[in-house]
């Protein structure tokens, strides 16, 4: 189950990299968050960690539903371009993404030798981090950049849940805190950009 969800997580992320429509991108982000939430809930059940289950539900509500919704609203409101063409050409991405995945597994290989479990999760999280960065690099428009930023948070969260087997509540709060702040700022920035456009 865990492996399946992680696979789903990474798959949605990769698909998001090739997406050329904004709403589709938001959808992929939402699915990505969903798999993350389910993952947290599953792991939480298996190790009997209530906080993790709670955070899983929070993720579900916030990231899988609320944030995509808001994002969509915002983009409709500002009439953001729905066409988002990646800067990096597809054939380059096709080469780069598998190379990255292979690299991260290779990177995590010594960890497997040292610790019994979780090394692959670390690898997946790191590659998720790379992929989210790639998402940010790929696009010039602001909206996909924000989604890239959000997927970085997701990969962080993935790392937190899988690799450490549940973190102290503090950090989880931290992530949400960060997330909220980020959204606020992004909104404000949109606002500013808008103003600038009008002038």
């Amino acid at each position: 189950m865990t492996s399946f969800l992680i696979g789903l997580f990474i798959a949605t992320l990769i698909v998001a990299l090739f997406t050329m429509r904004l709403y589709r991108l938001i959808l992929w982000y939402s699915l990505n968050s969903l798999s993350l939430a389910l993952l947290a809930i599953t792991i939480g059940y298996s190790i009997n960690d209530n906080t993790m289950i709670l955070s899983g539900f929070l993720t579900l509500v916030l990231k899988a539903i609320l944030i995509p919704y808001i994002l969509k609203k915002v983009s409709v409101k500002f009439g953001l371009s729905r066409q988002i063409k990646p800067n990096v050409q597809i054939h380059y991405s096709i080469m780069l993404i598998p190379a990255l995945l292979v690299f991260t597994f290779y990177l995590a290989e010594p960890i497997t030798n040292m610790m019994v479990s979780n090394a692959n999760y670390v690898a997946i999280s790191i590659s998720a981090l790379f992929l989210s960065l790639l998402l940010m690099i790929e696009h010039k428009n602001i909206a996909p950049k924000i989604i890239g930023f959000l997927t970085i948070e997701n990969s962080l969260f993935l790392l937190g849940t899988t690799a450490t087997g549940g973190m102290p509540m503090l950090i989880e709060l931290g992530i949400f805190f960060d997330l909220l702040m980020a959204i606020v700022i992004i909104n404000l920035l949109f606002h500013q950009e808008e103003e600038e456009g009008l002038e």
Binding site: V122, L129, I152, E153, L159
Partner: peptide, 20 residues
Amino acid sequence: MIVGAIAISLILFGIILIYA
């Protein structure tokens, strides 16, 4: 904002790994 956010995420990412 963008670069700072990435940097901060990286820091947190690293912190989690250290923690792990």
